[in-house]
Simulated scan of single mutants.
Amino acid sequence: MDALDWSGWAAPALALCALAMVSWWYQHSRGWRSWPVIWKTVLGSLVAARITFVLQNAGDYLAAPLSIADLGDGGFSDAAGILTALALGLHLTARSGTPRRPVLAAFLAGAVAWTGGAIATASLGPRSTPLPLVALKRLDGTPVRLHDLAGKPMVVNLWATWCPPCRREMPALEEAQRRYPGIRFLFINQGEDAATIQAFMAQQQLGMANVFTDRARQAGRRTGSFAMPTTLFYDKDGRLVLRHMGELDRDGLDRRLEKLMTGSAGQR
């Protein structure tokens, strides 16, 4: 496993700072003490998100029980965390008599800070970072390392079946995979299991090659890509040359692929 990528923790750190600052402001300006409710809600939702993710991937964790404590693997269930935060926040504010306004304001500020930090990390980070050492699985369960797939120009698409822009851009990416045999396309699903992905592909009549599962979303975290879809363009040496956050249409994709091919040709 490669060293922990501290840039992946910048956005959560900003979110925690925003939570604390808003809570402090309300306490000093209105006398509303909300921090106990906030930190208990954050801690409880993180624990629930981690436990849920571990249970969803029990087979992998049973093979290496100590890895359950490795929070650096990024394995958290978003749905469990959000639902727990809502339920716990409502319960704690009601039980303690804490006004809900400072709690809601703090979490809204935290969400904005997290999103802004993620975008800044992706936009301001080094453009030529190498492929991260991320462990993936093919849809049949075969393990593969992302770094081992380098050797030719590469397009890495980070996506999920529940993401509307991901779904809309998939036909253009599938077509490009056929039209550009000199480029290796990788479709790395973030957080979902193989059965969900296969059902989606069958329903949409998609036949892309190189579709992988990344249940812990390590690829997104270690490339600083927190929004979906994000498409990363790597040269033949495995170094990032282009990053696009959001949906790609055929024309926009073709422009970037031609640029990628031209740049790779110049490196020979």
Rank of each mutant, 00 (worst) to 15 (best):
Pro65Tyr: 04
Pro65Arg: 14
Leu66Lys: 05
Leu66Cys: 03
Leu66Ala: 14
Ser67Ala: 12
Ser67Asn: 08
Ile68Met: 10
Ile68Asp: 05
Ala69Gly: 14
Leu71Asp: 03
Leu71Arg: 02
Leu71Tyr: 03
Gly72Lys: 06
Gly74Pro: 03
Gly75Phe: 00
Gly75Cys: 02
Phe76Trp: 05
Asp78Phe: 12
Ala79Trp: 09
Ala79Leu: 14
Ala79Pro: 01
Ala79Phe: 06
Ala80Gln: 07
Ala80Ile: 05
Ile82Thr: 10
Ile82Met: 10
Ile82Phe: 07
Ile82Lys: 08
Leu86Thr: 08
Leu86Ala: 15
Ala87Val: 02
Ala87Asn: 08
Leu88Met: 10
Gly89Glu: 07
Gly89Asp: 08
Gly89Tyr: 00
Gly89Cys: 08
Leu90Thr: 06
His91Phe: 13
Leu92Thr: 05
Gly97Pro: 10
Thr98Trp: 04
Pro99Thr: 02
Arg100Phe: 11
Arg101Glu: 14
Pro102Lys: 05
Val103Asn: 07
Leu104Ile: 15
Ala106Met: 11
Phe107Pro: 11
Ala111Trp: 00
Val112Met: 12
Ala113Asp: 08
Ala113Phe: 01
Ala113Leu: 04
Ala113Ile: 03
Trp114Ala: 14
Gly117Tyr: 00
Ala118Gln: 06
Ala118Gly: 15
Ala118Leu: 03
Ala118Thr: 12
Ala120Asp: 08
Ala120Thr: 06
Thr121Trp: 00
Thr121Pro: 00
Ala122Val: 02
Ala122Trp: 01
Ser123Glu: 15
Leu124Cys: 13
Gly125Thr: 04
Pro126Gln: 13
Pro126Thr: 09
Ser128Ala: 14
Thr129Glu: 14
Thr129His: 11
Thr129Ala: 15
Pro130Asn: 11
Leu131Asp: 06
Leu131Val: 06
Leu133Ile: 04
Leu136Cys: 10
Leu136Val: 02
Lys137Thr: 13
Arg138Glu: 15
Arg138Phe: 04
Arg138Pro: 07
Asp140Arg: 10
Gly141His: 01
Thr142Ser: 15
Thr142Trp: 01
Pro143Thr: 03
Pro143Tyr: 01
Leu146Glu: 11
His147Tyr: 03
Asp148Arg: 13
Asp148Tyr: 06
Leu149Asn: 08
Leu149Met: 15
Gly151Ser: 08
Lys152Glu: 15
Pro153Glu: 03
Val155Pro: 02
Val156Cys: 07
Val156Gly: 09
Leu158Thr: 07
Trp159Gly: 12
Trp159Arg: 13
Thr161Ser: 14
Pro164Met: 04
Pro164Gln: 08
Pro165Ala: 09
Pro165Leu: 06
Pro165Cys: 09
Arg167Asp: 09
Arg168Gln: 14
Arg168Glu: 14
Arg168Cys: 07
Glu169Leu: 06
Met170His: 12
Met170Ile: 01
Met170Ala: 15
Met170Val: 02
Ala172Phe: 01
Ala172Gln: 11
Leu173Arg: 08
Glu174Val: 13
Glu174Tyr: 00
Glu174Lys: 06
